[in-house]
Amino acid sequence: MRIDAVLFDVFGTLCDIRRKRHPFLALAKRTSSPRSVIEMAMTRDISGEDIGRRFDVSSGEVRRFTAELHDELASIDLFTDADAALRTLSASGVKIGLVSNLAKQYAEPALDQLPIRPDVCIWSFECGWLKPDARIFALACNSLETKPENVLMVGDSLLADYRGARSFGMQAVLVDRQNTAPEDCISVQSLGSILSIVNDSSS
């Protein structure tokens, strides 16, 4: 089936964090409701200070969060196979979008690493939904003005990216750099392979 647009997950797919500090997780563990804090961080525009005030976290822990977050953001880097894949897809006229579950603080640093500007960015912290919720995929397809069956979702999460997109009627590919994907899913070890999948869809 023809592919008119490609949606990418961001972290683990296009970008890597070289110095993983997990600041939101560490801060959440200092609260009475860690799971709620993590979900809140990814579905709202909220800061560490906001979390600290709402969940009575000490100022020292909030300062540690801020330092670890700054260190983690500074270590964001583009995977080596992402640059050429994005440039080639963009030059070919394929629409490119991002669909990512992440806290607001990570969005701009990730975008700064990309060699192109995506046509759409669907962030969980803006829309309030987390993959694999069908609504986030519907928003992406509507924003691209493209039918789900003509959109390819590329990501490294079997549940959130691959199965979530397929359940919504989209095409999907799992990025599996460690070659551990289940046999029943379509996977690639390098983003360079996405180019041939897109090209084959139009032949």
Rank of each mutant, 00 (worst) to 15 (best):
A134H: 14
P132D: 10
L86F: 09
I96L: 02
L89C: 10
D119G: 11
T88S: 15
E126G: 07
P115V: 05
S92D: 15
C127S: 14
A91S: 15
W129F: 15
N101M: 03
Q113Y: 05
C127Q: 12
R135K: 12
L86E: 11
A107P: 09
P109E: 03
V120I: 15
F125S: 05
A107E: 11
A110V: 02
A134I: 13
W123S: 00
S90E: 14
Q105G: 06
D119E: 09
A138M: 10
S92I: 07
F137Y: 11
L98Y: 00
I136V: 15
A110H: 01
I136K: 02
K95F: 02
L114Y: 04
P115E: 14
T88P: 08
V99T: 03
A85P: 06
L130P: 03
A91Y: 10
I136Y: 06
L139D: 10
W123Q: 00
L102I: 07
W129P: 01
D133A: 14
F125Q: 02
L98D: 00
V94G: 11
S124A: 05
A91C: 11
P109D: 06
I96K: 00
I116D: 11
T88Y: 07
V94Q: 09
W129C: 11
A103T: 04
D112G: 13
L139C: 09
P109T: 05
A138C: 10
F125G: 02
S92Y: 13
R135F: 04
P118G: 04
